[in-house]
Design a protein around this nucleic acid. Structure first.
Length: 878
RNA sequence: GGGCGCGUAGCUCAGUGGGAGAGCGCUGCCUUCACACGGCAGAGGUCAGAGGUUCGAUACCUCUCGCGCCCACCA
């Protein structure tokens, strides 16, 4: 029999089990292995990253899913990998260069890339090592990287193919530009944040004659690039102005007043200054009206010479101040209002994004998005929880073209070459011709991530992996990247594989602190999962995360909760220790015949059946709180608190009854551990090996069979009802003890008055009740004596009388009985009122009415006993 | 400006058209031969508020208040 430590020590158990599984090759899958294929691809974390609680949750869920399916006999694979994370990674290395007093332009593109690759080889991907400590059963032999050779091939194939189909194009458009990262950003890489700014009103004087037009703007500096004033066509205030010109106060030019329905007459002054080069709306309006485009900010957001000597060379905010001051000096500023509005920020570096006109590459997403939306509407991919579906479809419907070029170096370089005479060639292979140069830009990181569900399986080659494991079974991810990533995978998979990338998208929430606050370094509420694993173990960390991960909600987490989960691990451990103190370690024998079993045996098997159904339902619904609650309740409340306590005396007595207990206990534990394994791989494996004598390696719980839920345990309503009688009496005796300050070690006799089933059960189970309640003995009698040295305990279905030779505090007992009487009286009043209600009696279902009548009768009987008791002790009964 | 979710014990959350629950925290007792990372018991709630449906609402409907999130090119 293996000796188990007194307390569960995760550090002593977890790493060695993980090593054993991995050495036995249990994580690895082959596409031609038996079993229905099941596959998950990891949302590839950034190579720059370290494991945070969000990853821990996301990967715990994936591990739970893949472990369960593996046990269910499916050919399950979980493909791990990392993302090259273009801008994020480039920023890391650029910071290093800055610290060395140099920059990427100084060392050049080639040397810079070498440097990033070197960094990646040395310190990238530590997150995958960290995932192992969490217990992740990923197929490490299949590790992929979004920028490795195989994935690069897929990227180029897709790019060229989309280009050939006219779905990728190059255009001069107004895009989101980060003046710090010096690159274009897609719409969703821009975060809108409310900021308090100013709405500045100023006047453009008419070029001919008196007066002018007052405009309102949040960005006065852009007036240096204004090429029109726009008003609503039906705005009478300005009807006469349309067609006239205003004079630019700082530049030697005039500006037309145009009419456009885009203008909202009710906002500001109803007249809008138009800067086609620096505002998306203005740009669109400019195209409609054929306006001049004056680019006045450079890539750094600095004003260019075109604005005139006075304002050139200023950073955006400085230019704003200078312009407002200058307008003020001319007496043109009429008002400055406080104004709260949303401003776009770079999601990578928080810099305010600048709309910028430039040559970029775009994906024409409409045709792809339509297929994605159709697939979701047809249910070919479903969201769990379902509530994420609608917002996702809405978002797809409003999708603009996707800007995919980035002006950085770390990433898939765009496979376009420019000839000396302005020719463009997009090619699957490098174009090497005199005078030709490749596009300097690289692709948005999400372009390669979009191909991940099939690129990891070797696409564009026809591989056995693709045939077996694509489409993947489930994608597990936070809802926050449905737009970035889920949508793009759907589009690309449907376009290039004519199938969805995954059958299910399981969206979990974001991990927050115990009060629902976002974790942030500045707030000091960040929880480090590696720290949790080190101190409480991987199983406890997994359990705590899953316990909070209700479908559709964010996931609150506090360290104390992980500590609580650790205590549960310890409880399980000690349940195992207890069992192993009595069991032979070896193969689990079948259950004894039902007719021979004791009440508590039948009861625990019935509870086991209910537990299995609950756990299975939770697993099937991706409802992790349901799963964890089922595990916790069964193991602690039912198995440990009641069954183990109930069978101790039988085990000690030995014989056939003890043998029955051993067999029931072995089956219960074996079954429970199987259900627990996906969530708690380490504790369950350690205990299971100890219990069954399994040798590890290929003989591990990790690859044991998932139980047949329908055949698990034995549902037995009678046993449940009968044991409830025992439990009720035991609890009441405990309560009586506690309230009367009677030591748990004090033994006394109890005489019980009861009828019918309650009486029969208590006769049969007198020893069990006595053992659990710490009684000297229990006898069934016809009536209580009501003697002065006695007290009574009311329980559901009867009354117990206790002979207490002076151990009881009469005042305390009267107090207890008085409180109980009040409770019962209130109950009776409520029931009487209800039954007296004609509406209830006539309209409620007969069964409900009968139930309430029975309850009233029972309450009346209990009240009678109580009052007799109170009178017997000399207390007032009324 | 749209859309969604939530408001149940001090905290985090389950829950159901018919007797208010769990974990943690708190209080008391217990070093009982698996576990003090434990056992037993207890205190604590107008189920946000107001209407409505119903014999009966914490639950279903409407509104109000409060909180959170997502989306959005109104200067």
């Amino acid at each position: 029999m293996p000796e188990l430590d007194k307390a569960y020590d995760p550090a002593a158990v977890e790493p060695s089990l993980y090593g054993d599984w991995e050495a036995a090759g249990l994580f690895h899958a082959e596409p031609d292995a038996p079993g229905v294929p099941f596959s998950i691809v990891i949302p590839p974390p950034n190579v720059t990253g370290s494991l945070h609680v969000g990853h821990a949750l996301d990967n715990t869920i994936q591990d739970v899913l893949v472990r369960r399916e593996r046990m269910r006999g499916r050919n399950a694979v979980w493909v791990p990998g990392t993302d090259h994370a273009g801008i994020a990674t480039q920023n890391v290395v650029e910071k290093q260069l800055a610290a060395e007093g140099t920059d990427r332009h100084a060392i050049g593109r080639e040397a810079f890339l070498e440097r990033v690759w070197r960094w990646k080889a040395e310190s990238g991907g530590t997150i995958l090592t960290q995932l192992r400590t969490l217990g992740a059963s990923a197929d490490w032999e299949r590790e992929a990287f979004t920028f490795d050779e195989a994935r690069s091939r897929a990227v180029r194939e897709v790019f060229v193919s989309l280009f050939e189909q006219g779905l990728i194009y190059r255009g001069n458009r107004l895009i989101n530009w980060c003046v710090r990262c010096l690159t274009a950003l897609s719409d969703i890489e821009v975060d809108h944040e409310d900021v308090v700014g100013a709405l500045t009103h100023f006047v453009y004087p008419f070029a001919d004659g008196e007066g002018g037009i007052e405009v309102a703007t949040t960005r006065p500096e852009t007036m240096l690039g204004d090429t029109a004033i726009a008003v609503h066509p039906e705005d009478e205030r300005y009807a006469a102005a349309v067609g006239r010109h205003v004079r630019h106060p700082f530049q030697d030019r005039t500006i037309p007043v145009v009419a456009d329905a885009f203008v909202d007459p009710s906002f500001g002054t109803g007249a809008v200054k138009i800067t086609p080069a620096h505002d998306p709306n203005d740009h669109a309006l400019g195209l409609r009206h054929g306006l001049d485009v004056v680019v006045m900010l450079d890539e750094h957001g600095i004003t260019m010479p075109v604005v005139g000597e006075r304002f050139a060379g200023l950073e955006r905010t400085a230019a704003r101040e200078a312009v407002v001051t200058a307008l003020g000096e001319l007496g043109l500023v009429t008002r400055v209002d406080r104004h709260e509005h949303a401003v776009g920020h770079c999601s990578r570096c928080r810099t305010v994004v600048e709309p910028r006109l430039s040559d970029q590459w775009f994906v024409r997403v409409r045709p792809l998005a339509e297929r994605a939306a159709a697939a979701v509407r047809e249910g070919r991919t479903v969201f769990v929880p379902e509530s994420r579906t609608e917002p996702f479809l809405d978002w797809l419907d409003g999708l603009h073209d996707w800007c995919i070029s980035r002006q950085i170096w770390w990433g898939h370089r765009i496979p376009a070459w420019y000839g000396p005479d302005g020719e463009i060639e997009v090619s699957r292979t490098d174009v090497v011709r005199d005078g030709w140069t490749q596009d300097e830009d690289v692709l948005d990181t999400w372009f390669s991530s979009a191909l991940w569900p099939f690129s990891v399986f070797g696409w564009p080659d026809d591989t056995p992996e693709l045939a077996a494991w694509f489409p993947t079974s489930v994608l597990v991810t936070g809802y926050d990247i449905n737009t970035f990533w889920v949508s793009r995978m759907l589009m690309m998979s449907l376009w290039f594989r004519d199938d969805v990338p995954f059958r299910v998208v399981h969206n979990h929430g974001l991990v927050r602190d115990e009060h629902g606050k976002k974790m942030s370094k500045s707030f000091g509420n960040v929880i480090d999962p590696l720290d949790l694993i080190a101190r409480y173990g991987a199983d406890a960390t997994r359990f705590a995360l899953l316990r909070s991960a209700a479908p559709g909600t964010d996931v609150p987490l506090a360290e104390e909760w992980v500590e609580g989960a650790k205590r549960f691990m310890n409880k399980l451990w000690n349940t195992g220790r207890f069992a192993l103190g009595w069991l032979e370690s070896g193969p689990v024998a079948p259950l004894p015949p039902e007719g021979r079993l004791a009440l508590e045996d039948r009861w625990v098997l019935s509870r086991l059946a209910a537990f299995a159904a609950d756990a299975e339902a939770g697993y099937a619904a991706y409802d992790w709180p349901v799963v964890t609650r089922a595990l916790y309740r069964f193991a602690w409340d039912e198995l440990a608190d009641w069954y183990l306590e109930a069978v101790k005396r039988r085990l000690a007595a030995g014989g056939e009854s003890a043998d029955d207990v051993r067999r029931v206990l072995a089956v219960v534990l074996d079954t429970f551990l199987r259900f627990a394994h996906p969530v708690l791989p380490f504790v369950s494996e350690a205990l299971w090996r100890a219990l069954t004598g399994a040798g590890g390696g290929r003989d591990s719980l990790m690859v044991a069979d998932w139980p047949d839920v329908a055949a698990t345990g034995r549902a037995d309503a009678g046993a449940e009802q009968d044991l409830a009688i025992v439990q009720d009496l035991v609890r009441e005796v405990h309560r009586f003890r506690s309230q009367n300050r009677i030591a748990p070690s004090a033994r006394f006799e109890v005489a019980v008055v009861a009828e019918g089933r309650v009486r029969d059960v208590l006769i049969d189970e007198a020893d069990l009740v006595a053992a659990l309640a710490g009684l000297e003995g229990l006898a069934l009698v016809d009536a209580v004596s009501g003697g002065s040295g006695t007290s009574t305990i009311a329980f559901t279905g009867g009354v117990a009388e206790v002979e207490l030779t002076g151990l009881i505090d009469v005042a305390a007992e009267l107090d207890r009985l008085g409180k109980e009487r009040e409770r019962v009286l209130a109950d009776r009043a409520r029931l009487e009122a209800k039954l007296a209600d004609e509406g209830f009696a006539s309209r409620a279902p007969a069964a409900v009415v009968a139930k309430e009548r029975d309850r009233l009768a029972e309450v009346g009987r209990v009240l009678g006993e109580l009052e007799a008791r109170i009178g017997g002790l000399g207390g007032a009964s009324g």
